[in-house]
Design a protein around this nucleic acid. Structure first.
Lengths: 132, 132, 132, 132
DNA sequence: GTGGTCTAGACCACG
DNA sequence: GTGGTCTAGACCACC
């Protein structure tokens, strides 16, 4: 469960965690049936209040993405894949769209946008392959 | 002063307005010395509370981006250009970087990322993206 | 946090509160790391709207004098001392200078000024002022 | 009519002007029967909106400190002296008291206050004698 | 409980 | 008309 948290960002920490979980499922890093870290373990790892993680697990359970088996832990639901893929695709789409909107509003011309993309693609590629 | 507001987004409306103003200055759509819409006028236009706009103007004045002449209006500061260009460049870079980060976390492979970009670039306008 | 507020004075209540906090830090009555009263608590104590206190805390945070840990409170910044001492020294100097300026403009002669000082010094406490 | 205006101060410009006039009368720099500058002349000199000066003259007239003789100008009232002296004495007293209060709140000890006073007294003396 | 943001509406000083 | 300040009260995220 490798989730990046930006505690100071305006998007709520709980949303960031939920999205992180959905992404992990969408990308297949975590599979239906896998056991998630306990509330406390994940909270410790993310340096976050356990209540926040508990809320995320509760919300995702309501969406049928997670299932809690009392006494044994929290698991990825058997039908978690499709909604997570859908959600993450939408999120990525929206992020890209947002980036372009900002680039345009900031007055970047086509060339500057292309340069920026190329540069970031290289970064992204490099990062993708060296990821643990 | 053409600013898009997403009232439901997690990023505070006031931050969105501030960024919109910085972008307008960075892109040269508004120039040093120009008078901004009055607090009340902009609030009416954006369907936002005047206090929210006042807060934005006040914050940007503290950053030396705006100068307010009480009773007569709020104006773009003479040295507003560079910090606005810097801020908007950083914001765009960060948005692009964020989009790629999400794409990566969502498990998209190179081909999918390229497709997504192409699609968004078409949306964005006449711009062309040459796949490397 | 012993702050005197003059609600009818022309200087904004929020500025008075901010100065009171700076003074408390400058004088060592409140130290780096100390927790300040909560927004609501201080507002209740000073008979002021919570928004006013929140604005003060927010402004002082931007000056790096306070640090807010959301959900847990507002604390004196680790490097708050020097700027507060500087600010309070300047404020005192300016107040004294202003008093003398007024005395001069009001046409008081040396003797009247000396009398006034003596009288106020007695009010102020055990302090003694030796006329030169 | 030598009045110092601090346009950015929190005390309203109109109050500053009114106090300046009262001080001038209290100190005898302007005497009952003297003609004051016209609204426009004073406004030009103080770099202030004529409306502001007009309001001051109107207010002081209501206090019987000034008298307007239509067509010929604004004059100091015959009984202006005592109230102006009283007001300016109170203002000075209050300013001094305020300065001491701040000094105490800022944590200055007796010695520091004495030093500060001495220093300012010298400044004030020098200024008083070199005043034009 | 904490702070952060926003809305609504008031009053003031100034142009 | 302008902006500045303050009050009142709401909702949200987090501890």
């Amino acid at each position: 469960m490798d989730i990046r948290i930006e505690p100071t960002a305006s998007v709520p920490v709980s949303d960031q965690i939920a999205e992180g979980i959905r992404f992990a499922i969408a990308a297949g890093r975590t599979r239906p049936g896998d056991r998630l870290p306990s509330v406390r373990a994940l909270a410790r790892k993310l340096l976050v209040n356990p209540n926040t993680v508990a809320k995320v697990y509760r919300d995702l359970e309501r969406e049928r993405i997670l299932r809690t088996k009392p006494g044994s832990g929290v698991f990825v639901g058997s039908r978690a894949g499709p909604p997570c893929r859908r959600a993450s695709r939408d999120a990525v789409r929206e992020a890209v769209r947002e980036a372009f909107r900002k680039a345009r509003d900031a007055g970047l011309d086509d060339r500057e946008i292309a340069d920026l993309l190329e540069c970031c693609l290289e970064d992204a590629g490099a990062l993708r392959y060296e990821r643990t």
